[in-house]
Amino acid sequence: MLLIRFFGGKGGVGKTTLAAAYALGRAGAGERTLVVSTDPAHSLGDVLATPLSGQPREVAPLLWAAEISGEEQARRRVAEITEDARHAVPREVLPAVERHLARAADSPGTVESALLDRLTGLVEEVGARWDRLVVDSAPTGHMVRLLSLPALLTPWIEGLARQRERARGADRLLAGMLGGERERPDPLLDRLHARRDRLEWLRARLRDDALVHLVLVPEQLPLAETLRAAEALEGGGLRLGRTVVNRVVPDDETGVLARRREHQERVLAELAGRFSGTGLVRVPLLPDALTGAGELGELARRLGEL
């Protein structure tokens, strides 16, 4: 079942509004739906006309929403590890542990890894707490990197785990020879394996249960970026859902908008060719920005099940 839906695209194409409308539609159809925004510049709360935090909050019947952040998740994890370390390591090394953790948390890539970690937690709840998860993802390049992370991380963690196993193997041989200590479970190795398993699980789950809906406005620059994103996502093992073309000028317009319409037709033709397998959804140019559950309703009906 394709219960996890991502909405991705260039900034300003309306993906937050579309994700919110889609989520609202699913909730209206009786599904317990969670919509989350991962964009560091959150606007989901503005679209839903209600303040949001990192924890899901019910904003309409059967609809929950949250704005999740990698920084927040990284801070939480460092705090948890520091707390665990109090019981696991000698007291005199705790300041050093804290310094090393702070440095590691400042590493490039940490925010994205942490965001993916938070998202994994939510994906784990799909099927139990939620019937559907809608992710209003960050701008395209960021999203692609985020989702291809497991593929990059798994070999690295496997390397680390192998390295650890080699060290343990030599250690065990030595201990046996000296008639030394009995074999103990290795907390490091367990953690490395758990980490890798979690990433692999997410990757498989996304491959089986997730669709990415690329969102764009029918103009040349967003078109180029969308084609690149489609290639990168499919290359990363993700499936594309129907592509949503936002702000299509109705064909009864005159003047400037009519000329705009001609340009849009060319882009739409190219899109129809590229996405013939998955299909397109056209959303007309609307006079106002939509906010709140009431105004999003019409848009939700247009998107349907996607």
């Binding site: 050093a96 542990v97 090393h100 440095r103 948390a105 590493s107 490039p108 690295w156």
Partner: peptide, 27 residues
Amino acid sequence: MLESLGVDNPVAYETLDLVPYLVADLH
């Protein structure tokens, strides 16, 4: 602990919970 050596570590977040044990080992 690459970042402690001044080298960027692309998976620092994934190995965060190893840090206390490795510092304890060093100790």
